[in-house]
Design a protein around this nucleic acid. Structure first.
Lengths: 191, 191, 191, 191
DNA sequence: AATGAATGAGACTTCATTCAT
DNA sequence: TATGAATGAAGTCTCATTCAT
């Protein structure tokens, strides 16, 4: 695949992100997507089988990005508390810095029409990182002995909720508030 | 005849809940909605100006229900901790007992095409209850001195996240787990 | 038929005239017609078989009125020129005084969907009066020896055209101008 | 390809003329229009924003044609009387030779739902030609010193009325009768 | 006799997708 | 390979008419 081939594909996904996050999947006709990406509609169908494939591929891409963001500055040698705080600070900051990506991913996660298999596949890849970390924390008796899913829900739920509110303008997050939020989350889960 | 008027309207909203939660707003044509409600399509338009009005009215109705559910067995005389735990247990149990309602409300909350004014209006009515409670808890120095929004995000985010996972089959909640989850949340927010 | 029966029928026709002339036949739903006439929709269908019947009946009524108006102050003893001028002055003034009636009748005369039989039947009744008069004028060698239809077209065409322009605000007619217009028409047709 | 682009657009307008003149605007569903034009429905919407735009564009086109027809064989050097007779003969013959075009334009001129601005804009362009001619005739004291509007109404009204009757089968016009009709009209307006 | 809630055929329009260039 | 004109299935909504009250 030449460079310029990739350029088109990326242009399409970038345009898709903009438009889907603003207008939703259903509010975004393929023609508009083509216009915004500066390609012909036919071209979209060279890179993606159909509209759903655009959505799914975009989701995959973004989920990858957010996992990468989450893992920044994390080493296994760090104290578990610090890892925890860094992980969720990373995540929340990524969401806030990329409101369109956050918006799209949440929309996607509730869209019932999307192929379930695709959803699961990508989601689990995302959760895997965290699962391992929580298991590790529990084993070392630093994190409460709750089910990993429950721990995940508690920490992740707060972060998602905060990002959503921030983007909706219902709360205004800065570094200090973010830090105190994640520390609050830690209080919930520490042993 | 009042009763029969209400019957049709309610039949439509019930069908809408079923179909919207399963297939999403856009996956539910008005014809299907009419069929499921055992009503002519024209009839829907006697009760609702258009599809969006069906959605908005359903949301309003359900949000009212969930606020009512949340307030059950809560009195101002109860210890604050007990109130907190009851409130969020109520909410989580309501979501789990009514997965379609939960699904629909979350979908709605992310739908970008829905009139923003309507969204805000209903949401704020919902949040008000909690806001007052959190303010009260902070004043009595039982809840951490964090912004009310942050407190809300922490407790509500966990509950939403748990409900979502439970419905997706990613976690299985029973009364005992629910209790420990909410207690975990309390650990986050207690002073 | 009791008096109150007639009242409803007339209320419907009055409302129809208002609404049809403003919004056209197709721009006027039966429900709106019922509202404006202060009757139930069902009631309209007691007095008229269907929407078309409302239109046709209204047309008949109005054509009758305009023939009556045209004939005012005309006696067979008058000079032919005076009769001519009075007839078309009457007609033009009737149109101007009743723009809704004029509008409706013209609309009707061009509506292709209306039962042709009904159209002809009523139209001819209208033309009959004039035909007799023109024949008489020709016989007495006061009016040019042209086909009656052509004479009719010339005099009537001018009046219709003037009424249309007046109502559209493209010309402003007063008694003096009306008189000179009809005299102009007479110049065309006199021998 | 310019040619093929125009082909579709023209096919649609041709079909529209046929169908609108036969069945009226409201009696012509877009699906039927598409069928008659041998075009998919979607294609109509590539060339016209909506049904009204089809109507307005068709009107514009036809009004242009009729102005062109009216002007044939007219030079400023001709005697005014000859110009007058040629103009209105041209117009009447154009109407008779194109009964669908005439029908459509008259229907349009009475349709209350059509955007008024568009109507005026096109109509005035049409009238302009005549206005100039009448002013010229008045200045040279060949045409009566009546308002231009009145002159227009008189000559145009007759022609429209004749065309309408001819098409309805109420009169049968040939070249000789047409000539005598327009001469009659001239008698009305000459000084 | 009068009503108006209920109906559903059918109108307009959109938009995902195809395919000839 | 890239394009975008063409398509028509399918969606939303209107409105003439019916019929039980």
């Amino acid at each position: 695949m030449t460079k310029s081939d990739c350029d088109k594909r990326i242009a399409i996904l970038n345009a898709a992100l903009e438009l889907f996050s603003e207008n939703g999947f259903h509010g975004t006709p393929m023609t508009l997507l083509a216009d915004r990406a500066n390609v012909g509609i036919g071209t979209i169908y060279r890179y993606f089988k159909n509209k759903e494939e655009v959505i799914v591929n975009l989701y995959r891409e973004l989920k990858g990005e957010s996992v990468a963001a989450m893992r920044e500055n994390i080493t296994k040698e760090m104290p578990i508390r610090e890892q925890f705080i860094n992980i969720f600070e990373n995540l929340l900051k990524f969401y806030i810095a990329n409101p369109q990506k956050f918006s799209f991913m949440e929309q996607y996660s509730y869209s019932p029409f999307i192929n379930c298999a695709a959803k699961q596949q990508v989601c689990s890849a995302y959760a895997e990182s965290l699962v391992n970390f929580f298991e590790y924390g529990k084993k070392h008796q630093v994190i409460k002995d709750l089910s990993t899913q429950l721990i995940f829900a508690t920490a992740n739920g707060q972060v998602v909720s905060l990002a959503k509110m921030h983007i909706a303008g219902e709360i205004s997050l800065d570094d200090k508030i973010i830090r105190s939020a994640i520390e609050t989350s830690w209080d919930a889960l520490k042993r």
